[in-house]
């Protein structure tokens, strides 16, 4: 029987192919190593803001030795709530009054008569300008987490992240109505509140109510009976919109009706006009510490923007450039 001989060329080609296949398999099985990590997720790029878009500069700060939650201003004073504390400052940042509270007031507002309304966990407390407790309203709901309050001439509105509703009270504490509960039959989508940030304010120009719907990255306008009128806001990592799952976290209004918003996650403070069009940046993300949350806002009658920086325990004051 004749013996078949494999030519040398074929053997060489086969050996080369085996070597190439082995090297390919080994290289494919190797995990990427070295200085460049292919899985590194760089979010710093989203913190960059064009300096030309920053329309405000920081002019002052009020350092406070406490854990801070809520902020309000009127023509004379700055009101700050902390852990079991209500602090009053004059316009120059000097502390004028320190009031001990029974619990944590997460939000604060002041009416034209200088009555101070505090949003405690599940109820509202009312204080006089000299720091005496005038009234303690009933618990709204055992599940309540009051995150914002705003006062108009006749009513007090409470945003409750626990029940995902807005409550309207008379100024004597009587509950008049509530809205925001999801009702599919009535076509009410409800407020989407994934985290305890749910803000509202009274419009300085027409006394209507603006409520943040954070899960939809929108700011919604209602009349005082809770009837929906309009909304603005879009979801975007870019400056024009609101980033993340649920923003803006806080809201304030300029004397001309422009909105000031703050976001959590990618922490930034921006101004939008009354139609919801982006105007400029007040505080860029790189001006906050990492993991800063709960940046409450207030604006005085001259347009100065007060930013509560809970991470640094300061109230930062910004003026237009």
């Amino acid at each position: 029987m004749k013996k078949r001989v494999i030519p040398n060329d074929v053997i060489i080609v086969m050996v080369v192919m085996v070597v190439i296949a082995t090297v390919a398999v080994v290289r494919m099985r190797q995990k990427p190593k070295g200085d460049v990590n292919p899985y590194k997720y760089d979010i710093e790029q989203y913190k960059k803001v064009d300096m030309a878009l920053i329309g405000y500069c920081e002019v002052a700060e009020i350092k406070i030795d406490a854990e801070l939650y809520g902020l309000a201003v009127d023509d004379d004073q700055i009101y700050v709530t902390g852990d079991k504390l209500l602090l009053l400052f004059d316009k120059n940042g000097a502390e004028t009054k320190r009031i001990e509270l029974d619990g944590a007031a997460k939000c604060v507002t002041v009416d034209a008569d200088k009555k101070i309304y505090l949003g405690m966990a599940d109820h509202v407390e009312v204080y006089s300008a000299d720091g005496n407790c005038i009234d303690r309203w009933k618990t709204i709901n055992k599940k309540s987490i009051i995150t914002s309050i705003a006062v108009s001439e006749s009513s007090l509105f409470v945003a409750d992240a626990g029940t995902r509703q807005v409550y309207r009270f008379d100024k004597d504490g009587s509950l008049r109505s509530s809205f925001g509960e999801k009702d599919e039959q009535a076509g009410v989508p409800g407020f989407v509140i994934p985290s305890p940030y749910f803000d509202l304010l009274i419009d300085r120009t027409d006394q209507s109510l603006w409520v943040v719907n954070p899960g939809h990255r929108q700011i919604e306008n209602y009349d005082e009976d809770g009837r929906f009128k309009k909304a603005w806001g879009a979801s975007s990592i870019k400056l024009l919109g609101f980033s993340g799952c649920c923003n803006p976290s806080h809201l304030a209004m300029m004397p001309d009706g422009s909105f000031v918003t703050s976001e959590k996650g990618l922490v930034r403070v921006k101004v939008y006009n009354h139609d919801g069009e982006f105007v400029n940046v007040v505080v860029p993300p790189n001006s906050f510490d990492e993991h800063t949350v709960g940046v409450d806002l207030a604006v005085d009658s001259t347009g100065r923007i007060f930013v509560l920086d809970s991470s640094r325990s300061v109230v930062r004051v910004f003026e237009k450039k």
Binding site: Y39, Y41, I43, G244, C245, G265, L266
Partner: peptide
């Protein structure tokens, strides 16, 4: 694969 991209995203933009 434990790359933590989702962890960082959830930390930065979520709860």
């Amino acid at each position: 694969i434990g790359c933590a991209k989702c962890v960082k995203g959830c930390d930065a933009f979520g709860n």
